[in-house]
């Protein structure tokens, strides 16, 4: 398979920064420091460029997301991390003049292309958004929405089971089991976000993308979500965009640092936060800008 070549490419890319002088930082080069690639990649992205009309938002990013790992994406606001995340399940398609170039694969199958159907793709790569966005329907209907449109459940009992399982996994079951018919919008912010996670889980995705899922939540609710992410890792591959470095440190195995549309450094989370290899990463995590 082509894993070999990719690995080789990964190694060269990864080995370069070791020797690269830290004083010679050029923000305009697309070289990524650290370990952007891994062996059992669930998703592979190579040389991704994203344009909004004439302006380029993402410059030549290559990254792997491994099976059952949590990859955190950090960086100053406007650095393109959310844009990149939204490429992974083609949510950028909804933006009229957005154009994505590069090679993106899920289990070796291309994500972009004429023949690729976004509908099953998005069922496999679920997404949780920055602001909790439950539908103005009951809690039950919110979770059942995905299975219903995809025709996953054959019987009512099956659907009930899926809803219950999803809510359990999202750690919400005990709080809502007695009021499944009440509107999802009536829950607290943290509960709403967990409902959205349950909604995403209900279609059995393989990858879950999270776009700053805690930015609208208070610390206690945030802690619950972080706990949940740790539990979900057993079953799902997760990519999470966050503006909180502490959160990245708490939940992720690998961390990617984005800067001005470029992927500056990817490494094991511990390495990034204790021994950043790129000057910009260091500057960011030590709080010199953000």
């Amino acid at each position: 398979m082509d894993t070999m070549t990719l690995d080789a490419a990964g190694q060269t890319a990864a080995s370069q920064p070791e020797s690269a002088e830290r004083e010679a930082v050029d923000t305009n080069t697309s070289k990524t420091v650290g370990k952007p690639f891994c062996d059992d990649a669930k998703m592979r992205m190579r040389n991704v460029n994203v344009f909004y009309g004439e302006t380029q938002a993402i410059h030549d990013i290559s990254l792997d997301i491994g099976c059952n790992e949590v990859v955190a994406m950090i960086g100053p606001s406007g650095c393109g991390k959310s844009t990149f995340l939204r490429c992974l399940n083609r949510m950028n398609d909804t933006i009229e003049d957005c154009r994505v170039e590069g090679e993106l694969t899920l289990d070796g199958e291309p994500i972009y292309g004429q023949k690729v159907d976004v509908v099953p793709l998005r069922a496999r790569v679920g997404m949780v958004f920055q602001k909790p966005n439950p539908f103005p329907k009951s809690i039950y209907e919110n979770v059942a929405y995905g299975p219903k449109i995809h025709g996953i459940a054959r019987r009512r009992a099956e659907l009930d089971e899926i809803v219950e399982n999803s809510l359990r996994r999202a750690g919400l079951w005990n709080e809502v089991k007695d009021r499944l018919d009440q509107p999802g919008t009536g829950l607290s912010g943290g509960q709403q976000q967990r409902l959205c996670i349950a909604r995403a889980i209900a279609v059995s995705p393989e990858v879950i993308l999270m776009d700053e899922p805690c930015s609208a939540l208070d610390p206690i609710a945030t802690a619950r979500i972080e706990e949940l992410i740790n539990e979900l890792r057993e079953n799902y591959t997760i990519a999470i965009v966050t503006h909180s470095m502490q959160q990245a440190a708490r939940v992720s195995q690998r961390t990617a640092y984005f800067h001005l549309g470029r992927l500056v450094e990817v490494n094991d989370t511990e390495t990034v936060f204790t021994n950043p290899q790129h000057e910009l990463t260091e500057a960011y995590i030590t709080g010199r800008f953000g």
């Binding site: 909804t94 509908v119 793709l121 998005r122 069922a123 958004f129 966005n133 103005p136 449109i149 279609v203």
Partner: peptide, 27 residues
């Protein structure tokens, strides 16, 4: 109708018409 609702439905793999019929119109 906020865009976030559409995103939520599309992100689950709804087609556009499903998003419109099941989320946007009811809302």
């Amino acid at each position: 109708v906020p865009q976030s609702l559409r995103d939520g439905a599309l992100g689950l793999g709804s087609t556009r018409s499903e998003t419109v019929r099941k989320v946007v119109i009811p809302a």
